[in-house]
């Protein structure tokens, strides 16, 4: 079993200054399992990710903090070191460069830094990396488009719930429907109307 007391302290500590750091951690889906968490990072300014909020699935192995946490983007993101398919991350500190002196917060901050400074020479997603190196303007446009399309949704989810509820659908149903279509408002509306 991992060090529960440390993880609890990490959560408190990380969320204390989330307004400044732009990273926060919560239990996954509001559950009670300390080994499954959800991180949130805000897209760094002056990058194609600015304005986006990115969710990260965090799983703690039983050996934590002597083994690195397993992190993966839930929010789709266009970045050379993050798989555009499944959100897998290529970052040394989450692999062989992990140290128990690092924390979930420092790992999330490193992810934020990775968004600011991609490393296309050590890619996770070859297609994105190639685009980054050969057609940089297209890369920026795509990354920005993905941010708008996928990373905005998570911020505005309450807004969407509100709009759909105003249309006369019950709130619980709206929330679960939005969840089932990953926050796509139009799809959710279609589903709500057809059900």
């Amino acid at each position: 079993m991992f060090d529960v007391s440390r993880v609890q302290k990490e959560l408190t500590e990380c969320n204390r200054d989330k307004a400044i750091s732009g990273v926060s951690i919560a239990l996954y889906e509001g559950g009670s399992d300390l080994s499954h968490l959800r991180g949130t990072i805000t897209g760094p300014v002056s990058t194609p990710y600015e304005g986006g909020t990115f969710l990260i699935d965090i799983q703690l192995p039983s050996g934590y903090p002597f083994e690195p946490p397993k992190m993966q983007f839930i929010t789709k993101v266009w970045h050379p070191n993050i798989s555009s398919q499944n959100g897998a991350i290529c970052l040394d500190i989450l692999k062989d460069q992990w140290s128990p002196a690092l924390t979930l917060k420092t790992a999330l901050v490193s992810l934020q830094a990775l968004l600011s400074a991609p490393e296309p020479d050590d890619p996770q997603d070859a297609v994105v990396a190639k685009q980054y190196l050969q057609e940089y303007p297209t890369f920026v446009a795509t990354a920005r488009y993905w941010t708008e399309a996928f990373a905005r949704t998570s911020v505005a989810i309450e807004e969407k719930v509100r709009r759909l509820v105003e249309m006369g659908f019950p709130e619980d149903l709206v929330k679960s429907t939005l969840d089932s279509v990953n926050g796509d408002e139009n799809l959710a509306l279609e589903k709500l109307c057809s059900s």
Partner: peptide, 18 residues
């Protein structure tokens, strides 16, 4: 106890300075 655990499980380096 914890630094000994680290040396055994992770590697023979200082966790902060490496």
């Amino acid at each position: 106890a914890v630094i000994l655990d680290h040396l055994r499980k992770v590697g023979k380096f200082d966790p902060v300075t490496r």
